[in-house]
Amino acid sequence: MKKLIAPLDNAVGLALLATLLIGVATAMTFFYAPVDEDGLNQKIFYFHVPIALTAYATFGWGAWKALVHLWKKKPGADLESYVAIHQGTIFGSLTLITGSIWAKLRWGHWWLWGEQELVLFLVIFLFYCTYFMLRYSIEAGPRRANISAVYALFGVVLIPISFLAIRLAENYIHPIAFTTNGPQMAGSQFGTFLVCLVAMFALAGALYRLELLGKRLDTKLRDLRELVLS
């Protein structure tokens, strides 16, 4: 198992995989999955939802690394947590934009407070934007790593709580809850969706590894400078 995963644990392997999968996913979205009664806007769904799920996954990964940092004191976990959350905000802003376009297509408005997923995302997005403000206003060091980690942990708890809160708020903000029970997905649609999901995960993984490589290279260069010139 470990041998099987090993090639995926580096930037090159993941980038290759992402390239392949994104290609297949896009082709499947447009040439394989049928256009249903929802119309063409359903094509947005094929990558909007995977992007949103990827964003949640990266936030979760960031929180996991934060926990590893606090618990095991593993060096480097802080940086990994930060990079994962950075990926999360990138995918998060993509979710907000593509979701907004989808809302415009489907309901004719760029923003719908009735669309719970979008509102939840906005809350989470605001929360994680503050993560960067917080991190960059503290001097680098163990204190910053700890505080960032605690904040990242609060994030994963805030996600389900906010989800519940937004559900609850619907009752007094929009008394008539409108359901969006779309048609059931056909097998070919679900297959396409799954491929798109895996493709987005691979893309996020590749970007995560890439950014991490850059950051580590930075640190190593600084170490090297001190070693050579001291």
């Binding site: 605001l126 503050t130 403000m133 917080l134 503290i138 709580i161 906010s162």
Partner: peptide, 20 residues
């Protein structure tokens, strides 16, 4: 208190957390 921008950052930290 650990951050450079104490008074400025507290509302930013607290408001998203208190939406629920």
């Amino acid at each position: 208190t650990a951050s450079r921008s104490r008074e400025l950052i507290l509302p930013l930290l607290l408001l998203p957390l208190t939406i629920p």
